[in-house]
Design a protein around this nucleic acid. Structure first.
Length: 561
RNA sequence: GCGCCUAUAGCUCAACCGGAUAGAGCAACGGCCUUCUAAGCCGUAGGUUGCAGGUUCGAGUCCUGCUGGGCGUGCCA
């Protein structure tokens, strides 16, 4: 419908240019939007407002001239000028109903597009250190990252999901020391307990498994515990494998799987860290000071230079990060999106600066970032502290177990990543209708329910007959639903461009709301076969779009509740 | 101090590249189940969009300054 209006307006513009009403060189970006208020018709454009200056006409006069120049169309029943000069279009109901045919023809592919042109895009998300169970913040990252991947895929991108394990840094040393202490029977309260050691109970579990000689499988490797209390290297390897496995299990339970698990240690093993350092030195962007090697990140917009090789010889985290992102680029990804917590935002400037300093033709904005803000968890109205080091925090596993996978995912994704959010455990786990995910799922189940009822009562539902009778759908709420369905494809495109999967959740809530409203106001199972089939057909189309959208969120679409 | 994010109804959040009367849910109040699942619907009430300027035909949205909150500002990640 929008395309139709766009074509009409383009034709009108050309006519006015020919007539000299408009300068020939104006090439406006014609914006057509769905109206918020039905009094303004179904679609509106501000074209006359935008062009009033170059045309030298008052907006309303120009609007009238545009309307006069519009070609005839069956799809439009009425065109008005309103307000300061908006042009409002009223869609012909029969033409609007064509969207139902489109939805049913395209099925689960409805809303897909080829925007991405099969471009390879990599999304890195979660990337938790293997030093403890995933917490709710990782859950938010997992939900947003995974949905973003699904969203990009339906927009025609070839998506790779990647998880980066920092398995080589100081925090892993700390983990090994903590497990070693537990292996020796120490408690965090003990004076000999390592400084800044991980105090969580899970460390005890790791130690016990290590002493028991357990074998754990993480990624494509199996690691068997040596059981030797003094072999810190063996303890380290086992602890990392153990916690990686834990995280993998949690993610799987959350419906999130990765294509690539990338280990930081492999960058050292393959010499990529060294190669990166050498190249940075060769390019003249480094200097020694205080016994450390610095990178001149200030030449690329940072507010101070950063240490890349410590006085004691090891590298800071950001150097392997640069090597890692260079590797992503070398793997052929021109678009890389990193989804991570906003507490890591300071890495953005550094990583990009390091990549620029390599001078290998990587664009300045590489990689892209989607940052999510903190999640505040409350229980009984009291904040639950999230602190990995303190060991007391709400894990993703807790949430999945208590709240359920669907509700947890929906809850974590339904808000813009930039907004700090409160995860109220009591609210989210309550079995009442407080959680909006049920609202959407229920709309889907309702359509299924009506179809079951039709079958139970021996009423033949004939979709072909329904499609032939779409002109019977004359109720205002039916038109609302059609317009809403018609808006889905552009929503999908817009959400992908903005890297904002939460928009899909927003849309689904609106669609479900309009369906529930319709369902209560208009009876579907009427005597009239043709009308009943037409309404059932509309219902099936709504169900299809709900299912498609829920699929992008990674939330199930149940047939009954 | 500096950098990033943020401030919208009592609470949690929306508002599509700047558009028309700022919308939902929860909480409150009043209605709707002998009719397709009431996990639903209908209605009432609730707002100086943190404050002050500016740009614009038009600002919650863009710019500047201020105030409050979060995060960062490690030779941690």
């Amino acid at each position: 419908m929008k395309e139709t209006i766009l074509a009409l307006l383009t034709a009108a513009l050309d006519a006015l240019k020919e007539r000299g009403t408009l300068p020939a060189d104006v090439a406006p970006d014609i914006k057509i939007e769905a109206t918020k208020d039905k009094a303004h018709g179904d679609y509106a454009t501000n074209l006359a407002l935008m062009l009033s200056k170059p045309a030298g006409l008052k907006p309303r006069e120009l609007a009238q001239a545009l309307i006069d120049a519009l070609p005839e169309s069956q799809a439009i029943s009425q065109v008005d000028i309103a307000g300061p000069g908006f042009i409002n279009f009223f869609a012909n109901t029969e033409a609007a109903a064509e969207i139902i045919r489109t939805v049913l023809d395209e099925g689960e592919r409805f809303g897909h597009n080829t925007q991405g042109n099969d471009e390879a895009v990599q999304v890195e998300f979660v990337s938790a250190n293997p030093t403890g169970p995933l917490h709710v913040g990782h859950g938010r990252g997992a939900a947003i990252g995974d949905s973003l991947c699904r969203l990009l895929a339906v927009n025609g991108y070839d998506v790779t999901r990647e998880f980066y394990y920092n398995d080589a840094g100081a925090q892993i040393d700390n983990l090994a020391l903590s497990v070693a202490a537990r292996v020796k029977g120490l408690e965090p309260s003990d004076p000999a307990w390592p400084q800044d050691g991980y105090r969580g109970e899970y460390i005890k579990d790791v130690a016990r498994a290590y002493l028991n000689g357990e074998t754990v499988k993480a990624g494509d490797r199996e690691t068997t515990a040596k059981g030797d209390r003094d072999d810190i290297q063996a303890i380290r390897e086992f602890a990392v494998a153990y916690l990686r496995r834990e995280q993998d299990l949690d993610l799987r339970a959350f419906g999130v799987e990765f294509d690539v698990y990338f280990l930081e240690s492999s960058l050292y093993r393959d010499g990529k860290v060294e190669a990166t350092v050498e190249r940075l030195i060769d390019n003249g962007y480094t200097y020694e000071s205080d016994g450390a090697l610095w990178l001149k990140t200030t030449e690329f917009g940072d507010d101070k230079d950063r240490v890349m090789r410590k006085r004691e010889g090891g590298y800071t985290y950001f150097l392997p990060d640069v090597a890692y992102h260079h590797d992503k680029w070398n793997r052929g990804f021109k678009t890389v999106i990193n989804e991570q917590g906003a507490d890591h935002h300071s890495t953005i400037t550094r990583v990009r600066a390091g990549l620029q300093a390599l001078e290998t033709g990587i664009p300045e904005g590489f990689p892209e970032y989607v940052l999510h803000q903190m999640v505040l968890v409350t229980r009984s109205g009291v904040e639950v502290k999230i602190s990995k080091r303190a060991g007391s925090y709400v894990t993703l596993r807790d949430l999945i177990d208590e709240v359920g996978r669907d509700a947890t995912r929906y809850f974590l994704i339904a808000r813009a990543a930039t907004s700090q959010m409160t995860f109220d455990i009591d609210l989210a786990r309550s079995q009442t209708n407080d959680n909006p995910v049920y609202y959407i799922q229920y709309a889907h189940a309702r359509v299924c329910s009506v179809l079951r009822k039709a079958e139970r009562e021996g009423v033949q539902f004939d979709q072909a007959r329904g499609l032939a009778q779409l002109s019977l759908l004359t109720e205002e709420r039916e038109k609302d639903l059609m317009n809403r369905l018609a808006a889905y494809p552009e929503l999908i495109a817009r959400a992908a461009r903005a890297r904002e999967p939460y928009q899909v959740a927003q849309y689904l809530q609106e669609l479900a709301g309009e369906f529930h409203s319709y369902y209560n106001a208009v009876k579907v199972m009427v005597e009239d076969d043709a009308l009943r089939d037409a309404r059932l057909t509309l219902g099936v189309a709504v169900r299809q779009v709900l299912a498609n959208g829920l699929g992008i969120l990674g939330v199930s679409a149940p047939e009954e509740m």
